[in-house]
Every structure is written in structure tokens, then in C-alpha cells.
Design a protein around this nucleic acid. Structure first.
Lengths: 368, 368
DNA sequence: TTGAAAGCGCTAACAT
DNA sequence: ATGTTAGCGCTTTCAA
């Protein structure tokens, strides 16, 4: 709807533009060249010989104005290079047209495209994104508080929060939607992917390719997503008849994976597969396995990562990984948040976005 | 509809306030618990028994207020969970406290930490960053226009622009500073790193490690930074007595590097080194060289990248690369922009931030 | 359809 | 030091 109106205005504008490009060939000096201050609706009104409210109406989605005034106004506006001041608009409307997005450093690094599409989607409707980046193990509470103070209309949070933060949002009537995180609080909607299911699939694939003893490397208990994936994997092992995996905690990055295997040393040979909580860890483990221990992957030992990082597909790795459709998760989240803005009282919604296991060359193929 | 509800809420609020000023003394429950609308400075003023401007002063850096009023005001503010509305502030002050940052998709992907620190630096002063992400080969003109419409106070641009865009910024009195890009326009400051010099160093290192015939893989002529690096490298070869390098254009990513070497096939064997315009390309080339052609790096052929991407250090690669201090470039840029906001007429400044050649295992060591 | 006028919540003269 | 008042640039009743 907002998109539509914007479009309409743009079309009108285009129309005017076309006209003047014919008419103004000779008048080449834009009036505002030397101007310090940008034109306001009053300036436009004066030039067009109408009231300021007329100008406002012409630039409003549902403003009523006669064709004649509309034309006069648009012409004057063009002449003065007038663009409605969004800040004044915000103050008047009580909507900042700002959306807050909180992501972890990890996500920012590994979902660059998703971030971009979030920005793009927002700017399509003329809104903007206020991005906050926090550490993967931190709670987003302070970030939320900051966003709230900046009067964002909605907040999308791809990090853990406490109920207190959720309450703050609710108090401020600012829709909050969580991505890949759950919270027992009716006001917050959430977008998740079937993390458990996909880890079951991982276990199944390893089982059917002959693995028995497996190792899971996680990023520590304060890392929500890591814990989630670990739980899914452990369950998956049980479901698919694998022994419980060994668990190792390390840092949530390349060095963590490297260190985990280094710590294990030769004893890592007893494992048939190592599953890591994310790609960087998996890559670290993979490098250690190959270069330090001297094992062949996947024939000696299989390796699975998570998140389908850009590097995963690089020839030297070809890492089997899980791709999360972060792009769509973000879009869904934005959608949910704006929907609640219109209907604050509606029931909590939890949307699920599919993810996908990408089998590459660090795992064996099923024989079937 | 939304307006109506807002109105109703407002009325309730007024009602509550009126009552509470009579009743409150004893009730200690945070007053705003159920409140929809946030408290304004008027609410605080009323509760504190002072004028609204007194409240404003207390919350202003250089506001004068007696200890007593200050205390009353702060107490009331705390009571109502009052936070000054930044939008109203913006309108009044004529400053949005928003900074625009334009980066290419490539930069967003490969300088994640820098991006974060930019966000953090901004929020330290209570300002926020509006990030725009564009394609590496695009001009930032539209992005700039959008930011200008959103009334950003400054814009930092790490992408190419035309003089027209610069002029727009100047017209709007919005300081614009370019990162790693030059423009012949007095109003725009810039932050660059010595791209040419560092490429001379690359050439020198290759020369002293015995390389003769070298290949440069660039990202096409519409990619400014790629062209810049190529030129630097070509000059470097001349300076250090190397034959002019062969030049190959490809896409500015991993697949581009892969494809470049694939195209060359066996004839790549005649080269002693390949220098790529960035890390992903270098990595692609490296993989192709090793896995497809079957060459040993660095003994058969050396490889050099650029940007010191996270992956460059991974054991399977150990790519020699150039680290750009994007973090500092961003900070410098922000600094310059705000400085010009205070002094719009001051001379153009071009700051240089050092970069560094990181020798890893895809190049040979100097014998000396 | 149009214009006048009252906000939106703040800052900054200005006056006291 | 404090209160009064006039903006900042919009949107939106309310009359005409």
C-alpha cells in the first residue's frame, strides 16, 4: 500500500518532469543553486500561490487536490527541488520510519547478502534500517534500549534477549520480532528455522554413510544457536541409532575449530565424523584434521558445518553445510513487525522458514 | 484509524496524569507501566512543578539549572521513564543526528569488523548510521540522493560517485567524504590508503624472490579499486625491473579468479606469479592453480591477493595479501565529515591511512 | 477542494 | 536561574 502510493507519486512526478524537460530547455539554472536552506512546503506554497496545507496534501498519499493545484504545486516543488522533510513528518505522524535491526557480529559476517536485502526492502518503502551489531554471546537488551530511545517503529532482533527487553518494547508499543530465537512472551513474534530437524538430517546422513562415533564441536553454553544445534544433533543421533556424540566446547570461530582438534590430537582418529556448530569452526577443524593430524576427509573422517558461509563452497574445502534462508527470515520478520504495528493486540505468530542440508565433499555419499 | 487510537490513548494519558498528580505521593509503582504514550518534557515539567524549558535545560549539555530544579526534574523524569524525543530534537536543532554510509557489497562482506566499529563509534555520540549497500561497480549517486532526502547530517562514501552527487551534497550543505576514491571537487574530503605504493611493494617482493613473468587478474574497468591496484602493480613492475605483467579481466570474486586460470589452462605455467585485485579472486586462482592445473604454490608459482579477508589466513590458503586499515579509514572519514559540518568552508583534506603487506605462504621468502 | 490553525516535542532567544 | 514564547516543517481537523 505504502509502496503503491509512493509509486503513484513517483509517476505524477515523472509526468511533470517529462513536461518541463520540454519546456525548460533554455532555463538551465536551478533556482536553489545558491540556497543554504532547503525549501519547505511554505516556500513551495508561496511560489505556487496556494496554501501550505495544499502542498502537504499533494505530497500525501490520500491528499485531495484538484488537478490544477496539484500541477502548480508539483511545478513549484520541482523548481525549488523540494522534498518533504521526513523528520517533520515523523514528529507529526508519530512514526519515525526507522526500523531497528540487531544482529550478532557473527551474522553480520556470514549473512552479508541478507543484510543487504533487509536494507533494500526497507528503503523500498522509504523507511530506513538502524543496524546494531553485538557480540554473539551478548544479550541484545542494551541495543534494544538504544533503539527504543531513537524511537524506531519496530525492532527485529537476531540475538538473545531477556523478557525485560521484550517488556520494554511492549511498553513502548514497538513491535519486536525475534529471528532464530524463542522467548516466552506473548507480544513477540518470531521467525525460526527448523534447527532440530535439520540436525536430525545431519545425523541421519552420517549414520547412513557408515559413521558411528561422532564429535560435536560447539561454541559454548552462552551461545544460544550453538546450544540449539547441539541439542538437535544429539537428538538426531539417538533417533538414527548413533551413539551419543562426544561434545567439545570451543570458541565460535575458525580458531575454535582448529583448537578443538589440536586438543584432541591423535585421539581424534577414533571419530568417524565431526559436526561443528558453524562453518568457521568446521573449517578450522577440517584444516587441523588434514594438515595437522594428516587424515583424509571424507574417507577417514567426515566434516559438517553450518550456515553455508561463502567459503564453504571454495574448492579447497567443499564443506557440507546447512544453508539457512536468512534473507527470507529477515523479510518475514519485517513483515510480521509491521503487521503488528497495525494490529498490536493480535496473537503471537511463529513463522518457520526452511533450511537445507548441502552435501558437498567433506561427507561421503549415501550408497543408495 | 491509527490516528484515532493515538488520540484516545492520549486522552487516557492526560486523565491518568491529572489523577495521579493528586494521588501519587504514596503510590510507588512506576507510573508508566500501562501507558502507551511515552512521557514528554511537559509531563515531566508538570510532575516536577517547573516549566517545560527547565526540563529541556536539565537535559541539555549546557543548560543552566539550579541543583534543586535539576533534582526535581531528574526525579520526575525517572518516575515517568522520560527520554527526550530525538525526532523533536532533530526538527528543532536542524540536525538529524543521522550519518549516511555507503559501502559496496564487496566491502560489506570483507570488512565486517570495520562496519561494526563505524556503527559503534556513531552510537557513542548518540548518532546513528544509515547504511546503504550498492554493487561494487555502481555509482553511489542514487544512494546519496536517498540519504540526502532522509536528511543525514553527513555522508561517508566508500564507492564511486559523480561530480553531480558531490554537488548535491554541497548544495544541501551535507559534508561528504570519500573513502578510497578520489574526486576532483573541492568540497569533498577523502581518506585514502597508499594503494600505488603497496602495489609497488608487491612487485618488489616478487622481483626479489625471483619472479619474472607475472599475471594480474583484475575485476574489470568499471571497478575503480581494481583499476587502481592494477595501475599500481604495473608501475611497480616497471620500477622494480619486472616485465610488464599480463592482464586478465574477470569478475571481482572467487569465481572470477577460478575462471581466469581456467581460461589460461596450461599456458599459466609460464607465469611465476599471479597477483589478483582482491582476495576472493586470488583464492579462486589459487584453487584453480593447485587443484586444476596441479601447480605447487609458492614453489611453482606465487599468488598475492588484496584486502586480507578473514579466510586469507586459513591454513589451507595462507594467502599473502594486503591489509587495509578500513577501521581507521572509517573513523577518519567520520571525523573529517563532522569537522566540516562545523567549518563548511575549510580547505579540502585528503588523509592517508597506512596499509600493510602481509607475507604468508603463497609467496616465497626473500633470501636476504 | 481549499485555507486557517492547532498540534507533534523539542530548543533557544528573550525577558524577568 | 527560570518562565514565556516563538519557531523547526510537517499533518490533520475544522470551516468555508
Amino acid at each position: 500500500m505504502s509502496v503503491l502510493t509512493t509509486f503513484c507519486i513517483r509517476m505524477q512526478f515523472a509526468h511533470v518532469l517529462r513536461f518541463e524537460s520540454i519546456l525548460t530547455q533554455s532555463i538551465s539554472v536551478p533556482k536553489r543553486m545558491m540556497m543554504e536552506k532547503r525549501a519547505t512546503s511554505y516556500d513551495v506554497a508561496k511560489l505556487a500561490g496556494v496554501s501550505q496545507s495544499a502542498v502537504s496534501r499533494v505530497f500525501s498519499p490520500n491528499g485531495s487536490a484538484s488537478k490544477k493545484t496539484r500541477e502548480k504545486v508539483l511545478e513549484a516543488a520541482r523548481e525549488l527541488a523540494f522534498v518533504p522533510n521526513p523528520i517533520a513528518k515523523s514528529l507529526s505522524l508519530g512514526r519515525s520510519r526507522l526500523a531497528g535491526l540487531i544482529v550478532t557480529q557473527y551474522a553480520q559476517q556470514n549473512y552479508p547478502v541478507a543484510l543487504r536485502s533487509a536494507v533494500d526492502v526497507m528503503s523500498e518503502t522509504g523507511d530506513s534500517l538502524l543496524i546494531q551489531i553485538i557480540d554473539s554471546s551478548d544479550y541484545a537488551d542494551t541495543a534494544i534500549e538504544q533503539l527504543l530511545q531513537k524511537r524506531v517503529d519496530i525492532v527485529i532482533c537476531a540475538a538473545s534477549i531477556t523478557v525485560a527487553a521484550a517488556q520494554s518494547c511492549k511498553d513502548a508499543a514497538v513491535p519486536l520480532v525475534l529471528i532464530n530465537r524463542t522467548l516466552d512472551f506473548e507480544w513477540v513474534d518470531q521467525v525460526v528455522s527448523p534447527n532440530a530437524d535439520i540436525m536430525h538430517d545431519v545425523a541421519e546422513h552420517l549414520a547412513t554413510t557408515g559413521a558411528r562415533e561422532t564429535l560435536f564441536i560447539d561454541g559454548g553454553d552462552d551461545n544460544w544457536i550453538s546450544v540449539e544445534r547441539r541439542r538437535g544433533y544429539v537428538d538426531g543421533c539417538r533417533i538414527h541409532g548413533l551413539p551419543d556424540p562426544a561434545i567439545l566446547s570451543s570458541s565460535f570461530d575458525y580458531d575454535g575449530g582448529l583448537a578443538a582438534i589440536a586438543d584432541l590430537g591423535e585421539s581424534v582418529r577414533k571419530f568417524d565424523a565431526v559436526v561443528a556448530a558453524n562453518d568457521p569452526m568446521a573449517l578450522g577443524a577440517l584444516d587441523a584434521l588434514r594438515h595437522d593430524i594428516g587424515l583424509d576427509v571424507p574417507s577417514d573422517i567426515q566434516v559438517v558445518g553450518h550456515d553455508d558461509t561463502e567459503v564453504a563452497r571454495y574448492q579447497s574445502y567443499g564443506l557440507t553445510s546447512v544453508r539457512q534462508d536468512m534473507h527470507n527470515m529477515l523479510l518475514k520478520a519485517i513483515e510480521l513487525a509491521y503487521a503488528r504495528l497495525d494490529e498490536p493486540g493480535r496473537d503471537k505468530i511463529a513463522t518457520e522458514v526452511e533450511n537445507e542440508l548441502l552435501l558437498r565433499s567433506t561427507t561421503k555419499n549415501r550408497s543408495d
